[in-house]
């Protein structure tokens, strides 16, 4: 059963982020994924997050698919023009990739190739339009395709927004849904209460929202996320991590509880971001 069917029947889906390597040694990525293959519904393969150059999402996803795993290929507007984006979407579908996630892509200034040009030939909404066009058998220039893809399309949503920003986010979400987006990935959540304003406005039965659960690898990381990245992490949680004799075990225990809370809240699934602790995914999913 593919991810789309699992969504359709209302299964609580487990997604896991699987970063392709910076290089060609794919063994860590493949081994980490294979270990949890039967517990994960699909692996989200990022496309050079934070503008750090590494193996592309298309390459990483194809490698995982070749080992029998379903993937979500991330596509960004930063690195490719409309020709390359459409070409890669066709290539992906031709290679069996059924799920994609469109993102704008962070500015190269944040990454490891500061001097490069960002492409941004088309913006995110136009990318979704391109996907819709391909699915109806035409490219963005209106030319006929020989066979058309049929993707399950994802996008980001900032579930942490409040007030005016929340109104804008909901309007943007509606715009994305209209443009063909089927599911939304929300940023890391450590307390469901932190996204209560968002939950009041969204019907989880009608909109597929998948919050991210991030593994806290250290107290420093937790503090940084809380102070600088607007990810609300309670002092209690930070203290709990601080007092724990084994930080990794405690981190997995924290993540397990959040996953349970996400499931109870009625979300369509959860996206686990292991942040380099992909080797601990199996233990986490056993606990879940």
């Amino acid at each position: 059963m593919h991810l789309k069917n699992k969504f359709d029947v209302g299964k609580f889906t487990i997604l896991a982020e699987m970063q392709p390597p910076k290089g060609v040694n794919v063994s860590t990525m493949v081994n980490s994924a294979v270990r949890v293959k039967n517990m994960v519904d699909a692996f989200l393969v990022p496309e050079m997050g934070n503008a750090v150059m590494r193996m592309s999402s298309l390459g990483g996803a194809m490698i995982l698919q070749s080992h029998g795993m379903e993937t979500i290929m991330q596509v960004n507007c930063r690195d490719r023009n409309r020709i390359a984006l459409q070409a890669d979407l066709l290539a992906a579908y031709g290679c069996g990739i059924l799920n994609i996630m469109g993102v704008s892509g962070e500015d190269p200034g944040l990454g490891d190739h500061h001097q490069t040009k960002a492409v941004n030939d088309i913006d995110l909404m136009t990318l979704f339009k391109a996907v819709s066009a391909l699915q109806t058998g035409k490219d963005l220039a209106g030319n006929e395709l020989s066979g058309s893809p049929s993707f399950l399309v994802g996008a980001n949503v900032n579930a942490r927004a409040t007030g005016d920003a929340l109104e804008k986010e909901l309007s943007r979400m509606a715009e994305k849904t209209e443009a063909g987006v089927d599911f939304f990935i929300a940023p890391p959540v450590f307390d469901i209460g932190a996204i209560a304003p968002f939950l009041e406005k969204v019907d989880l039965k009608k909109t597929r929202i998948i919050p991210t659960v991030m593994l806290l690898k250290s107290v420093g990381m937790a503090r940084y996320l809380d102070r600088h990245l607007n990810v609300t992490i309670s002092q209690d949680l930070i203290k709990r991590l601080m007092r724990a004799p084994d930080k990794a075990v405690e981190s997995l225990s924290i993540a397990t509880k959040i996953i349970s809370a996400v499931k109870e809240a009625g979300f369509s699934g959860v996206m686990i971001s292991a942040m380099g602790w992909e080797d601990k995914l199996q233990k986490l999913l056993d606990m879940v």
Partner: peptide, 12 residues
């Protein structure tokens, strides 16, 4: 060297 496009419009 590869051109540094940060000083062009590409840098914002």
């Amino acid at each position: 060297a590869p051109k540094d496009w940060q000083t062009a419009r590409d840098g914002g």
